[in-house]
């Protein structure tokens, strides 16, 4: 690991001031950052520890929304009774990820900033356009079994690893970002970027900016939401395909629906085509199968990951069936 300076800050102003100096990186849980620093994939010269900022509350707001501080630990968020009852899919998604120890460390903001698990990205021996723009992509014709079938480009096929963010996409969350010159609010669907020609740019966060909150609108979905994650082992593993869904019913008809996919795309993926199929249709298996087909219409497999198309469809169908019975 390369040497770096370390500073712990206690308020947002101080954090933003420090971040302006040199190649500074914020650290909170550290579960992605420290790992990648050991691999020489992340090489910050200055760490700014933001764990002392007062951003660790989950608050009800008067408009029915919920505001989650960026430092709320994943485990605390998943076990919050309001999240469990009103945003069940979010609790399920978080608990499907990592381990109890990691969920005690990882934060809401950090989860959004976590980097891909692409083997070639994590190993500086291989060329990677995400690590070093223009270097090439070893995954494209390499062992790409875990890679993306949606949202990929000619430069990058790395998947986004988060479970939490997939649920946030289904729930229409917003990300609050603080910069030295003010605050902006970005819809979660616009927070992560498609790789395009710049796979090194993964989010809209600019150097020196800080995630402060994530807000969840009061949705019409109540308990009818679910997360299904499919992976190589039963627990403590990243998704090969996952689905976060939410349903609003009118009798036996779907009035509105949300479908998001994880493990198959270069960013947490909103499947609007599937939502259109569901809206106004009967809430039954035939509809769910049609929705799953629609969600994967644009899928482009590589040599080793064509199986993900069927896997993701089954995740969607299963999640919709689960949501129906909640």
């Amino acid at each position: 690991m390369h040497p770096f300076s370390y500073e712990k800050v206690t308020n947002e102003h101080e954090a933003l001031e420090r971040a302006r100096l040199g190649n500074a990186t914020f650290v909170a849980g550290g579960t992605t950052l420290v790992d990648l620093m050991k691999l020489n994939v992340e090489v910050p010269t200055a760490l700014v520890d933001i764990n002392g900022l007062p951003l660790n509350q989950i608050e009800d707001r008067s408009d029915g929304s919920i505001r989650i501080g960026a430092l709320v630990r994943n485990g605390d968020l998943a076990h919050d009774s309001r999240i469990q009852s009103r945003y069940r899919v979010l609790s399920e998604a978080i608990l499907a990820g990592a381990s109890a120890q990691l969920r005690n460390m990882a934060t809401t903001g950090g989860n959004l900033m976590q980097r891909t698990r692409c083997y070639y990205f994590r190993d500086p021996v291989y060329p990677c356009n995400k690590r070093q723009p223009g270097a090439g992509c070893a995954a494209m014709d390499g062992y790409n079994r875990i890679h993306a079938i949606l949202g990929a480009s000619d430069t990058c096929i790395a998947t986004h690893p988060s479970d939490m963010a997939v649920a946030l996409v289904a729930l229409d969350a917003s990300v609050h970002i603080r910069a030295a010159n003010g605050e902006r609010v970005v819809p979660i669907t616009e927070f992560h970027l498609l790789p395009g020609d710049t796979p090194d740019r993964e989010t809209v966060i600019r150097p020196g900016e800080l995630i402060t909150y994530v807000t969840l609108p009061s949705g019409p979905f109540g308990p009818r939401s679910a997360y299904v994650k499919l992976r190589d082992r039963a627990s403590y593993e990243f998704a090969l395909a996952s689905a976060a869904v939410a349903l609003q019913l009118e009798g036996t008809t779907v009035r509105s629906a949300r479908v998001a996919l994880g493990g198959v795309a270069t960013k947490p993926w909103r499947a609007l085509e599937a939502e259109q199929v569901l809206t106004g249709a009967a809430a039954n298996k035939a509809t769910f199968l049609n929705a799953a087909d629609a969600a994967l219409t644009g899928a482009v497999p590589r040599r080793h990951n064509a199986y993900k198309i069927e896997l993701a469809k089954r995740a969607v169908v299963r999640a919709l069936a689960d949501a129906l019975t909640h």
Binding site: V27, G30, T31, L47, L102
Partner: peptide, 15 residues
């Protein structure tokens, strides 16, 4: 009081 992974956290963060 909470279980964490000591390999993924820096000692300096535990003052």
């Amino acid at each position: 009081g909470r279980r964490v992974l000591s390999c993924l956290t820096l000692a300096v963060m535990h003052d």
